Amino acid sequence: MITLTSSELALLDHRLRERRRELLAALYGEYGDLAGARPPEALGPESHPDETASRKAGDELRAALARHDRDELQRIDGALARITAGLYGACVECGDPIGYERLAAAPYTVRCVSCQTAFEQHRHIRQ
């Protein structure tokens, strides 16, 4: 049984949608070249090796940040889909309610604390 009030659900939905807009702006703005929206800045053959290495490190960091943002965007889209389906706030493992405080901290959370702990322990054992 999901125990969120309608005002709590509305607030979480708003926060998810706002964060989604922020991520899309970053992905198509700051990381636009990594998402294919604009071509990367080219270095000429006369570029200093340090400049080339620095540019490569910067590109790798931005690519990692863009991947992180895309992953978060997918989790947000999943949460919004669960809201639409009426399943938001229920643990995907056991079906128990996820506390409002937990959802307020990370609105795309899919597991209750108990199931998330078990999931992380199982994942740690497999690694």
Rank of each mutant, 00 (worst) to 15 (best):
M1R: 07
I2H: 06
L4C: 10
L4D: 08
L4S: 08
T5N: 12
S6Y: 03
S6H: 11
S6R: 11
E8W: 05
A10M: 09
L11M: 10
L11K: 11
L12G: 04
D13Y: 04
D13E: 12
L16E: 01
R17S: 12
R17V: 04
E18R: 10
E18H: 08
R21F: 05
R21S: 11
R21V: 06
E22F: 09
E22Q: 12
L23N: 04
L23V: 04
L24W: 08
A26T: 03
A26N: 03
A26M: 04
L27R: 01
Y28I: 04
E30L: 04
Y31S: 03
G32P: 02
A35M: 14
A35T: 10
A35I: 03
A37S: 11
R38Y: 00
P39R: 07
P39Q: 06
P40D: 01
P40T: 01
P40I: 01
E41V: 06
G44T: 09
P45K: 03
E46V: 04
E46K: 05
E46N: 11
E46Y: 04
S47V: 13
H48C: 05
H48K: 05
H48V: 02
P49C: 10
D50H: 08
D50P: 00
D50Y: 10
D50Q: 14
E51P: 03
T52W: 10
A53D: 12
S54H: 15
R55Q: 15
K56I: 00
K56N: 08
A57Q: 14
A57H: 12
A57I: 02
A57M: 07
G58H: 04
D59P: 01
L61Q: 13
R62Q: 14
A63D: 11
A63Y: 02
A64L: 15
L65W: 02
R67S: 14
R67A: 15
H68K: 15
H68C: 05
D69Q: 15
D69S: 15
R70D: 12
E72W: 00
L73H: 08
R75D: 15
R75I: 00
R75N: 14
R75C: 13
R75L: 15
I76C: 10
I76V: 10
I76L: 10
I76R: 07
I76A: 07
D77M: 09
D77Q: 13
D77C: 01
D77R: 14
G78A: 13
A79S: 09
A79C: 09
L80V: 11
L80G: 12
L80N: 07
A81Q: 15
A81H: 14
A81W: 08
R82A: 14
R82C: 06
I83Q: 09
T84D: 11
G86S: 07
G86L: 05
G86H: 09
G86K: 04
A90P: 05
V92R: 12
E93M: 02
E93K: 14
C94W: 07
G95R: 02
D96M: 01
D96R: 13
P97Y: 02
P97Q: 06
G99M: 05
G99W: 03
L103D: 02
A104N: 09
A106R: 12
P107E: 05
P107V: 03
R111C: 01
S114G: 10
S114F: 03
C115N: 09
C115G: 08
Q116R: 08
T117D: 12
A118E: 11
F119L: 05
Q121W: 08
Q121D: 13
H122Y: 02
R123C: 07
I125N: 07
R126Y: 00
R126F: 02
R126D: 03
